[in-house]
Amino acid sequence: MGELLRVEHLRKVYEPATEAIGDLSFTMRAGELLCVVGPSGCGKTTLLKCLAGLLRPTGGVVEMHGAPVTGPSPAMAVVFQEYGRSLYPWLTVRGNVELPLRHKRLSRVERARLVADAVEAVGLAHVARSHPWQLSGGMQQRVAIARALAYEPDVLIMDEPFAAVDAQTRADLEDLVRDLHATRGISIVFVTHDVDEAVYLGERVLVLSGAPTRVRADLPVDLPPERDQRSTRALPRFTELRTQVYEQIQRAKRGQNVAP
């Protein structure tokens, strides 16, 4: 499969003199599930906003299908960490999912089909007429995922989406992401601070250094594509990979910025 996303010498400085991202380069293939981990405060969210075209980088380029990203693109959809503030409480679940489709040139039937399909895919068909605040945190994040799915992006960008939900809900949501990736072949960039989550979900894990951020390690995850919470996490290879990522992050925290 071809190259989807290319990040080259990305640099972001917040005025007056906070260098959030130092020099970041990586590429991503279409259909990949790429997890990005790093110590807290390492500019993960900054990276994500640069990818999504919400922030303008100070230097370097982000390219999507070979064309530079200069603003939010219809080929990308974002799932934010703060689901409670990202969904619109005055709209129903269906209204929230449908909103980004309004300006796409779609027939009414086609639009309704996309919305119904996305709501069904995240398992919320039975509450489509409810308002987000009537649902639990995990269900609200499912609404945000459905909204992104219905948008039909080439790449789904997720910013620590499950950081604010409880462990059981989190496991369910992780499996939902794996499942959507497997059945729909969507490319996903998944930003997280959780090492276990990165290894369990990803096909590749990008470990970032502390700020100013660089790529510290780029590890392929050679676990079988069929994963489940119990058996995958019990595999010796899972433990090995987790240890590797963990050590890289520990070193990043101590500031040993060795070129990979």
Partner: peptide, 11 residues
């Protein structure tokens, strides 16, 4: 965040 959502989905 609501404004950023609107921007990301190009409302």
């Amino acid at each position: 965040v609501q404004s950023e959502t609107a921007a990301a989905f190009r409302l």
